[in-house]
């Protein structure tokens, strides 16, 4: 059974729907990447899963139940985690406090998880007592990811994790995503950096106008001339 499955999901922010019947299925071993032109509904799909907008049709199945239109803070204990694109750290709180907030719903000792996050992002361990607002863009993104990982999610969703980052940080983030996936966390992310992201995607979804256009593994999509021409800039 897939970790998460979207079936004909329709939804939007009120008014005309942005998603017009999206299908998707991700396993725990998958790295899923959503690409497509602007306005295609990529980020909207993630937000629909996480209960940040209204789903008016279709189902979103996670762990055997339909989680469509759940409250976001109820989804975290179930094993979902979300890294928004912008404003994704608590700028006035220290790095360590940001991570602690990620573990808010946990009732057990989360220090081992924090050690794990610090081992993946050593620079954060150095700056653990610094306010997150003082860090560089790339370091902030690490804090954002770390925060999301503190709840030990089964599925980690990221909205354009490489946005605005220098190439060095982009590589580092992507490498971390692959490493996290190897440790058993399913990944579903939206990316503008389509080629780079699809290169290591086990499932690629090309969306346009709120619907699926192409589905396949990342490398397949990159190789497909039609996809390359219309959505990946040739």
């Amino acid at each position: 059974m897939p970790l998460i499955e979207l079936k004909h999901v329709v939804g939007g922010y009120g008014g005309a729907p942005i998603l017009n019947g999206v299908d998707m299925a991700i396993e725990a071993s998958d790295i899923g990447v959503i690409v497509g032109p602007n306005g295609a509904g990529k980020s909207t799909t993630l937000k629909a899963i996480f209960g940040l907008l209204r789903v008016t049709g279709g189902t979103i199945e996670f762990g055997g139940e339909n989680i469509a239109n759940s409250l976001p803070d109820k989804l975290v204990p179930k094993g979902l985690s979300f890294v928004p694109q912008e404003k994704n750290v608590f700028t006035s709180m220290t790095v360590e406090e940001n991570l602690e907030m990620g573990a808010f719903t946990r009732t057990d000792d989360f220090r081992p998880t924090m050690d794990w996050v610090y081992s993946m992002f050593p620079v954060l361990a150095e700056k653990r007592r610094q306010p997150a607002g003082e860090l560089s863009g790339g370091q902030r993104q690490m804090v954002a990811m770390g925060r999301a990982l503190m709840s030990k999610p089964k599925l980690l969703m990221l909205d354009e994790p490489s946005a605005g980052l220098s190439p060095r940080y982009v590589i580092e983030i992507f490498e971390t995503i692959v490493r996290v996936n190897k440790e058993g966390v399913g990944i579903l992310m939206v990316e503008q950096n389509a080629r780079q992201a699809l290169a290591f995607a086990s499932k690629g979804f090309v969306l346009a106008q709120g619907q699926n256009r192409f589905t396949g593994t990342g490398p397949e999509l990159i190789a497909d001339p039609e996809v390359a021409k219309s959505f990946l800039g040739g």
Binding site: D73, P77, T91, E100
Partner: peptide, 23 residues
């Protein structure tokens, strides 16, 4: 934890909710 959650919510309410904080 609750006190920090309060500070988090004052800092960024949307992110607090996304992090699972019971707003």
């Amino acid at each position: 934890r609750l006190g920090k959650a309060m500070r988090a919510m004052a800092d960024n309410a949307a992110l607090a909710q996304v992090s699972g904080i019971n707003t």
